[in-house]
C-alpha cells in the first residue's frame, strides 16, 4: 500500500499548501479510523499481540503512573488547603480532591503526562515510523500478512483498553496521596477520609471519567499509529512521527476534554 503523501504537488492547491494539507490529513485520519474498525472486527484476530501491547502500555507504565498520581494527590491537597482554611472548610478537602481527581485530573494527567507525552504515544510513533522507513511494514505486506491488523489495530485496541485502567489507578493512587497529606495535617482516619471523599462522587462522575479515558486511549492509539504508519523521509521522519504523535494526541485530547465535560455537565444539570 502506498503511504499517505505528505506534500501535495506544487501549484495544485485549493486554498494554500498548509490549509490543503490540514484537510488532507483530516481526511486520511478519518479513512485510517474507518479502516481500524473494519480490521478490528474481522478475522483473524491477533489476541496474543493485543495482550502483549496491553502489557507494554499498561503494566510497564505503572511505576510512572503511580508516581504521577501520588504527587498530584499530595500537591493538589496541599495547595487547596489554605483557601479552604480561610472559610474554616478544611474538612471538605477529601470531597474536593475526590471530585477534582475523578472528574478531571486523573484522566487528563494520565493521558497527557504519562500515556501521551511521557511514554506510549511517542513510543508507538517512533516504533512504527522506524518499521516504515526500514521497510519492515512492506515486508509484512509482501509476506501476505496484514500489517495494519497486526501493528495498528492491536495497538489502538490496547491503548483503548489500558488508558481507562490507568486512569482509575491514577485516581486511586492520587486519593491515597491526598489521604497521606490530610492524615498528616488533620489527623483524619482512613475510613473517615474515604467516606467523605466518596460521599461527593456520583456514579455519573465515574462514568464520565471512564468514557473520557476510553476516548483518550483511542485517540492516543489512532494519532500515534497514524503518524508512525505513514512516516516518511528516513530517520528524520521517525523523529517527526514520534513528535507529531504526541502533539496530535494532545490537541485531540484537549478538544475531547472540553467537549465531554460540556456534555456531562449538561447531563448533570438535567438530572438535578
Amino acid at each position: 500500500m502506498e503511504t499517505v503523501p505528505k506534500v501535495l504537488p506544487k501549484n495544485k492547491y485549493v486554498v494554500s499548501r498548509r490549509v490543503d494539507a490540514f484537510f488532507s490529513d483530516i481526511y486520511h485520519i478519518w479513512i485510517f479510523i474507518l479502516r481500524f474498525f473494519k480490521e478490528v472486527f474481522s478475522s483473524p484476530f491477533e489476541f496474543k499481540e493485543v495482550v502483549n501491547q496491553c502489557y507494554h502500555i499498561g503494566l510497564k507504565s505503572l511505576s510512572l503512573v503511580s508516581l504521577t498520581g501520588l504527587v498530584t494527590g499530595i500537591v493538589f491537597t496541599n495547595q487547596s488547603r489554605p483557601s479552604l482554611e480561610v472559610f474554616g472548610a478544611s474538612s471538605w478537602l477529601p470531597s474536593l480532591v475526590a471530585i477534582a481527581l475523578i472528574r478531571a485530573l486523573a484522566p487528563l494527567v494520565t493521558a497527557l503526562i504519562v500515556a501521551v507525552a511521557g511514554k506510549v504515544g511517542s513510543n508507538i510513533g517512533a516504533e512504527l515510523g522506524s518499521m516504515r522507513v526500514t521497510e519492515q511494514i512492506d515486508a509484512m505486506e509482501v509476506s501476505a500478512t496484514n500489517p495494519f491488523k497486526f501493528l495498528v489495530a492491536t495497538r489502538v485496541l490496547a491503548t483503548t483498553i489500558m488508558v481507562p485502567v490507568l486512569v482509575m489507578y491514577t485516581g486511586l493512587v492520587g486519593m491515597m496521596g491526598s489521604f497521606l497529606n490530610v492524615h498528616q495535617n488533620e489527623e483524619t482516619s482512613f475510613p473517615a477520609f474515604f467516606k467523605s471523599a466518596f460521599a461527593s462522587i456520583t456514579f455519573l462522575d465515574i462514568y464520565a471519567s471512564v468514557i473520557k479515558a476510553i476516548c483518550f486511549g483511542f485517540t492516543i492509539g489512532i494519532a500515534s499509529c497514524y503518524q508512525g504508519y505513514n512516516a516518511q523521509k528516513g530517520t528524520q521522519g521517525v523523529g517527526r512521527a514520534a513528535n507529531l504523535a504526541v502533539v496530535l494526541s494532545m490537541y485531540f485530547i484537549f478538544i475531547e476534554e472540553i467537549t465531554i465535560v460540556q456534555i456531562f455537565n449538561n447531563i448533570r444539570t438535567l438530572l438535578l
Binding site: 521497510e135 519492515q136 512492506d138 515486508a139 505486506e141 509482501v142 509476506s143 501476505a144 496484514n146
Partner: peptide
Amino acid sequence: GLRELQQLRLKLGFSFQNSALYD
C-alpha cells in the same frame, strides 16, 4: 482486492535491499 492480493503474495517472495528483518 486486499484478500486476493494477499493470496497472490503467498506465491511471491520479496527480498528487500536492506533485508527488512523484524528487528
